[in-house]
């Protein structure tokens, strides 16, 4: 690791001011679980001049409810989300997603804000500098996306453009299905961005000097919720595909359904066509299968990731039917945080 200036932020304003002052050459440190990989492997051009510790900002880890909206502070630990009674009651899919991240140890350190803002896992992008030098690519603005013609087994099947890395966040998928927004603070004050709109093929919508400060989730009555994650191993792995479903069902008929797909695109993807199809339908295996087909109808797999489409369809179908995701998929080891 190389030397850097370490700053202690005690307020949002202070953190924003520091970010602005370093003009893009500073990094926020909350849990640090993703940041330290960057500092050690140095896969990005340049090295941060400053690390701004935001762990000391008071109150930024609060989870509460006010006037039909649940707010989750960006510094709330993933284990705090997965243990929250309020969230468990209102948004079980989010609790399941938070509990599906990494391992208990990491969830005790990693924050939900960091989980949402973490960098992509593309192996070309993250190739460590000390074994032959980092790899230039579209996301870094200095080369083509090597995954297109290379090993793209974990890359996007939907919505890739220039860069085919996928959003690795589990909580983003649940939050997208819950219609959540991110409150972003910056030099110009606060603004809101829908979670599903937060991600872009080359990064996210944070402008220079901005940081995510909290999540707002509208309280709605979609009691049937499920988060499903498919990964090669249960703990400490990123999703190959994940799915979050939130639905309300009256007398066996679906009155509303929201479906978000994860790890298949640069951000979580809402399956609008499938959601419309399900409205007014019974949640039968046939309808669930049809909805799964519709959810993936726009998929354009690369040379080696067509299998992700098959897995995604299975996960959508099973999540709608309330079945276990199967294999290592079932929202990981949720419960270990309790």
């Amino acid at each position: 690791m190389r030397n850097f200036e370490h700053l202690q932020a005690t307020s949002i304003a202070g953190a924003v001011a520091a970010l602005t002052r370093f003009g893009g050459k500073a990094r926020l440190n909350a849990g640090g679980t993703d940041l330290f990989g960057l500092l050690k492997d140095q896969y990005l051009p340049g090295f941060p001049d400053s690390i701004i510790n935001i762990k000391g900002i008071q109150g930024l880890d609060a989870i509460g409810e006010e006037r039909g909206t649940v707010t989750v502070g960006a510094l709330a630990k993933l284990s705090e989300l997965s243990r929250s009674h309020l969230l468990a009651e209102r948004f079980p899919a989010l609790v399941q997603a938070a509990g599906a991240v990494a391992s208990p140890q990491i969830r005790n350190v990693a924050t939900v804000g960091g989980n949402l803002c973490q960098d992509v896992r593309c192996a070309y992008y993250r190739y460590p500098s000390h074994v032959g030098g980092a790899i230039g690519c579209a996301r870094k603005g200095n080369g083509p996306c090597l995954a297109v013609r290379g090993d793209n087994r974990y890359h996007a099947v939907l919505g890739g453009r220039k860069c085919y890395a996928v959003c690795p966040s589990d909580t983003a998928v649940a939050l997208a299905a819950l219609d959540a927004s991110l409150v972003v603070a910056g030099p110009e004050g606060e603004r809101r961005i829908g979670v599903a709109e937060f991600y872009t093929p080359l990064g996210n919508r944070l402008e220079r000097g901005e940081m995510v400060v909290r999540i707002e989730i509208p309280t709605s009555s979609l009691p049937h919720q499920r988060f499903a994650k498919f990964a090669l191993r249960r703990p400490i792995d990123f999703a190959i595909v994940s799915v979050a479903v939130a639905a309300s069902v009256t007398d066996g008929v679906c009155t509303e359904a929201r479906i978000a797909l994860g790890a298949v695109a640069p951000g979580p993807v809402r399956a609008g066509e499938a959601e419309s199809f399900l409205r007014g339908k019974r949640l039968t295996p046939e309808h669930a299968t049809r909805a799964a087909e519709l959810a993936l109808s726009g998929a354009k797999p690369l040379s080696r990731n067509g299998y992700k489409v098959a897995i995604a369809k299975t996960l959508v179908k099973r999540a709608l039917l309330g079945e276990a995701a199967g294999g290592a998929g079932e929202y990981a080891d949720v419960g270990l945080d309790r």
């Binding site: 070309y124 190739y127 074994v131 790899i135 090597l146 013609r149 290379g150 090993d151």
Partner: peptide, 11 residues
């Protein structure tokens, strides 16, 4: 990686 000769999962 067949294109670059790099090992893509060295962690």
């Amino acid at each position: 990686d067949r294109g670059t000769g790099r090992i893509l999962n060295a962690n």
